[in-house]
């Protein structure tokens, strides 16, 4: 059966009709056509679908769209644009923290929440903090560097 969901996505109020078994990531990708958020697995592990819901990183594949009723959702499209990038986006580019780019939006969204939540981060806590995001390309070396660099800038 269809159900109506109203939420705020990237600062904009949206109302969509969808089936009750629609996940948040399906709503974002298919209904709202925000295809920067990706799906890389079906067991809630890869983290490619990570978005912010009410300010915290969540796996949008493991949230029903209806559960996001009234929530504020931010996707990769909502954190920065070409001429005004979020420090995390810039750092990923500067540190070569991405290769194929598929895990990148989820990785960036998870990393922003990590920096927001943890007052102090070293390489080890960055690595631990990103355990919910799988990257097959980079070996994480440059991602860890990027998150460290962005953390410093976000705290400036």
């Amino acid at each position: 059966m269809s159900i109506t969901v109203s939420l705020i996505v990237n600062g904009k109020a949206v109302t969509q009709t969808c089936l009750e078994n629609t996940t948040l990531v399906e709503l974002i990708r298919e209904k709202l056509q925000l295809t920067g958020t990706h799906v890389g697995c079906d067991t809630s592990q890869c983290g490619a679908c990570t978005v912010h819901m009410n300010g915290r990183a969540v796996k949008a594949c493991t949230v029903l769209a209806v559960q996001a009723e009234g929530a504020e959702v931010v996707t990769i499209e909502g954190i920065g644009v070409a001429d005004n990038l979020h420090p995390m986006q810039s750092a990923f580019k500067e540190c070569h923290g991405l290769q194929c780019g598929f895990c990148t939006p989820g990785m960036i969204m998870a990393a922003i929440d990590l920096v927001n939540q943890k007052a102090e981060l070293d390489d080890q806590s960055i690595r631990k903090g990103l355990e919910g995001n799988i990257c097959r390309c980079t070996g994480y070396h440059n991602i860890v560097e990027a998150v460290g660099r962005a953390a410093a800038r976000m705290r400036e």
Binding site: T35, A82, Q89, G101, F102
Partner: peptide, 19 residues
């Protein structure tokens, strides 16, 4: 040299097949 392709990937503007 920093990568030319990165801007689209870090802003969610890549275009993969499922997109």
């Amino acid at each position: 040299v920093l990568r030319k392709e990165d801007l689209r990937f870090i802003t969610g503007k890549g275009s993969y097949t499922d997109d």
